[in-house]
């Protein structure tokens, strides 16, 4: 229970996909000119991460890891197929994206129209593959946590692209030095936001008493400034992820429900 909450906030703020590990920067820079498109892509990323991370977790546990093939029989126990993980992960992601595209087109044409153009982009979004690779590297112990990790890192990415899109809409009215216009200033702003996000670093690691108190005061304030319209997302998700640590299937469904809510809202 506590580990779910911890992982949730850790992947949104401390290990933020964009600001801490620079994943998904290409689409982050290319699609952040308008808030509305940024919301569409962000929602699609949450959804795809929430689906592919648990799937790849299953692949990793029952196919790739050393000794993962034990369920086939004793003679397979020593096999280690982890060198195949890149190719299997990316194949899962590409297939899932294609599948999601087909399903969404069939059942919700309006959602497809707002999301459709972003789905092919997502297959090559490094945040998606990165989510699966970090899941593997950090040895996430259970399927419930994998679902949680996928969704919460998606939310982190969503917050990041929403914040930069809002800033870029406003910056059009500012006097930026001509050579920095467009890409240059976006890089520097992202850098500054990244430094801001570094301050979340002490949030869960404990540290000394005073520092912990300082962080606790700081968190809600920054959250409000950077992501006022989105505060519902972490809260809504927290309530859905909390009761679900045992029943993993329910977790997957809840994950989809959350991202669908986001989609509908957007």
């Amino acid at each position: 229970m506590l580990e779910h909450v911890e992982l949730f906030f850790k992947s949104i703020f401390i290990d933020n996909m964009v600001f801490a590990v620079f994943l998904g920067m290409c689409s982050y820079l290319a699609v952040s000119k308008k808030v509305s498109t940024a919301v569409g892509l962000g929602a699609a990323v949450i959804f795809v991460l929430g689906v592919t991370v648990p799937l790849n977790w299953l692949l990793d546990q029952y196919l790739l890891q050393e000794g993962a093939l034990t369920w086939l029989g004793e003679e397979y126990a020593s096999y280690d197929l982890s060198f195949l993980s890149f190719i299997l992960f990316i194949a899962t992601i590409a297939t899932m994206v294609q599948l999601v595209e087909i399903v969404v087109e069939k059942f919700s044409p309006s959602l497809y129209n707002s999301l459709g153009i972003f789905l092919p982009l997502i297959a090559v979004n490094c945040a998606i593959l990165g989510g699966s690779l970090f899941m593997q590297a950090r040895e996430i112990p259970s399927l419930g946590l994998a679902v949680n990790y996928g969704i919460s890192s998606g939310i982190g990415w969503f917050l990041a692209i929403l914040a930069i899109a809002a800033i870029r809409e406003k910056i059009r009215y500012s006097k930026v030095p001509p050579p920095l216009r467009g890409l240059g200033i976006t890089f520097i702003i992202t850098g500054l936001m990244g430094i801001g996000f570094q301050s979340f670093g002490g949030m869960l690691t404990g540290g000394d008493e005073a520092a912990a108190e300082e962080q606790a005061v700081e968190v809600p304030a920054t959250q409000q400034v950077e992501a006022t319209p989105e505060t519902y997302a972490p809260e809504a998700d927290k309530t859905t992820t909390n009761p679900e640590d045992q029943t993993t299937k329910a977790a997957a469904e809840a994950g989809e429900a959350v991202s669908y809510n986001d989609l509908v809202k957007s």
Binding site: V21, P179, L180, G184, G191, I195
Partner: peptide, 24 residues
């Protein structure tokens, strides 16, 4: 720290576009 990389790239872009104004 990671965010510094972004700022360094931002500065590289700045230098490059100041030298070649067609890219602005």
């Amino acid at each position: 720290i990671p965010p510094a990389a972004l700022i360094v790239v931002g500065v590289i872009i700045w230098v490059q576009r100041s030298r070649n104004r067609a890219l602005i």
